[in-house]
């Protein structure tokens, strides 16, 4: 075959494929937004589900998801950032660091359902927390730990070495250097990591199935040992096992839209931050 022709054919195919991917995203987003937008109202966002989850709102699920985001971040963020500081600033480049990197890398490849099993075995049963916000938060925290560590490490690595030597040469101790020089410079990128982790945590279902999520619980939690509803699990429930699937479809669309809105907002925020600070660092 003519080689020019075959190139043209191939390139047309690739362009179409590129288009297909973009269309796919807009199809999924469009489907959720188009069907969900008419369900969303102030009432939907602020009332509890009623009538076997075929009417009412999703307020308890929103509150539950916010609790889980807060809980998992309180746990994972300091732990992840501190261990990234350890591996990047203190540990040098020996076998220990390599070992730790392999460990956290592999941690990120473990399926989320396995985290759910682990959380159930350790937090719910062995430590006796029961199905509770604390058990769910710890499980989700472990799930995003590799993400927090990796983004923080990258942020720390991006801080020029000269900053550190400059600070040390002025007589600052290592810790002072980290606190006053390295961390402020790395903060924007660390924040980006934090936001991405929030996006990830808010959408995960499998880890919370057995550690916290309640099928139906209109009451708001009063302590960290209470169960809560959560958006992703609520979507699963109303989509598959409600008492009246047809009647609960609109609720499912609305829930999906709120969930996607949170996740996309976090992604966009992270992107914007990256761009904003990326420019700032370059010009300074």
């Amino acid at each position: 075959m003519n080689k020019k022709l075959s190139q043209d054919i191939a390139f047309v195919i690739f362009r179409i494929l590129g288009l297909v991917i973009v269309c796919l995203l807009f199809w999924i987003l469009g489907f959720i937004i188009y069907n969900g937008i008419e369900v969303i109202s102030w009432e939907f966002l602020t009332t509890a589900p009623t009538e076997g989850m075929t009417a009412g709102g999703i307020f308890p699920a929103i509150v539950g998801t916010l609790c889980l985001i807060a809980g998992s971040m309180i746990f994972a963020f300091p732990l992840g950032v501190m261990s990234a500081i350890y591996t990047n600033e203190y540990a040098g480049n020996g076998t220990i660091v390599k070992f730790m990197r392999v460990m956290t890398n592999n941690l990120s490849s473990i399926p989320s359902i396995v985290f759910g099993l682990f959380g159930m075995s350790l937090f719910v049963n062995t430590l006796g927390f029961g199905d509770s916000i604390i058990a769910g938060s710890l499980t989700l925290g472990l799930l995003v730990l590799p993400l927090v560590i990796r983004t923080t490490e990258e942020a720390l690595k991006a801080v020029p070495y000269a900053y550190r030597t400059g600070s040390l040469a002025l007589g600052a101790t290592k810790l002072q250097t980290i606190r006053r020089v390295v961390l402020p410079a790395a903060l924007p990128n660390i924040t980006t990591g934090l936001i991405l982790s929030i996006g990830r945590v808010s959408g995960e279902t499998a880890p919370i199935l057995f550690t916290v999520a309640a099928y139906f619980l209109p009451k708001l939690p009063s302590s960290i040992f209470d169960q809560v509803m959560a958006l992703p699990y609520h979507l699963y429930v109303v989509a598959t096992s409600g008492t009246n699937l047809e009647a609960s479809r609109p609720i499912a669309y609305g829930t999906a839209l709120v969930l996607i809105a949170i996740v996309l907002l976090m992604n966009l925020l992270a992107n914007a931050l990256r761009k904003y600070f990326g420019k700032k660092v370059k010009t300074s």
Binding site: I28, S202, Y233, L235
Partner: peptide, 10 residues
């Protein structure tokens, strides 16, 4: 970034 449960619903 879209959560898997949303893919499932779709």
């Amino acid at each position: 970034g879209i959560p898997s449960v949303v893919y499932g619903f779709f």
